[in-house]
């Protein structure tokens, strides 16, 4: 294996062309949006997500409390919404398979594509965002940036072991290009935007 490593690297060294410069990515040249929230909402809704604007956390807290009374398996991963569901990091796929809904705090939203960045620690368990039937993401309105360029300036991709951009529910068009929502991941995504 070391032999292959050296063989490959030597072959690359021998064959790679003369060094060229990296371009300077001037964010001043990219699109800007007058109202990032409006843009975020329009894009996300056009691709199957749902966006709800809320003045504060009250209505959501109530919703979570009501849902917790029901029989469905709900996980709350957002401290602002009350007690965080314990021991989620230890749950296996078999246990999480019954997960109906999870509430997750997003770090930021991206206006150009409706994506929300989520760190692993906010998911409690890497699998939750995918295995749940319904995903609820919550972001602050002030944390919606214009494009991915600004987003990558704010996040730290290797701060934790895993993180991701999520945009809209899972989908596929693999059968005759007919769009079907709910492929393997969540069947719906709702993003609550707190003023």
């Amino acid at each position: 294996m070391t032999a292959s490593r050296n063989k490959i690297l030597n072959s690359i060294k021998e064959h790679q062309p003369d060094l060229t410069e990296l371009p300077v990515i001037d964010i001043g040249k990219v699109i800007g949006y007058a109202d990032t929230f409006e843009q975020f909402r329009n894009v996300l809704e056009s691709i199957g997500g749902k966006v709800v604007s809320l003045p504060d956390w009250d209505a959501l807290q109530q919703l979570v409390n009501e849902e917790k009374q029901q029989e469905n398996f709900i996980i709350n991963a957002v401290p602002e919404l009350g007690e965080i569901t314990p021991e989620v990091h230890n749950l296996t796929a078999v246990q999480l398979e019954k997960l109906e809904k999870i509430y997750v705090k997003g770090t930021l939203g991206v206006a150009e594509n409706g994506a929300v960045w989520v760190y692993e620690s906010h998911l409690l368990n890497r699998l939750t965002a995918f295995i749940c039937q319904h995903l609820v993401l919550i972001i602050n309105k002030k944390d919606i940036v214009g494009t991915l360029h600004q987003a990558y300036e704010k996040i730290e991709v290797n701060k934790e072991g895993f993180g991701l951009f999520i945009a809209d529910p899972s989908k596929t068009a693999d059968i005759e290009q007919s769009l079907v929502i709910g492929a393997h991941g969540s069947r719906s995504t709702t993003v609550y935007v707190i003023e």
């Binding site: 991709v157 290797n158 934790e160 895993f162 999520i166 945009a167």
Partner: peptide
């Protein structure tokens, strides 16, 4: 990521863009 999904299917981004580090 701005180019990939737009070029592929016309989506603004894929549903999941997962960053694995550990």
């Amino acid at each position: 990521l701005r180019l990939l999904a737009r070029s592929a299917t016309g989506q603004p981004i894929t549903t999941y863009s997962s960053h694995f580090h550990k």
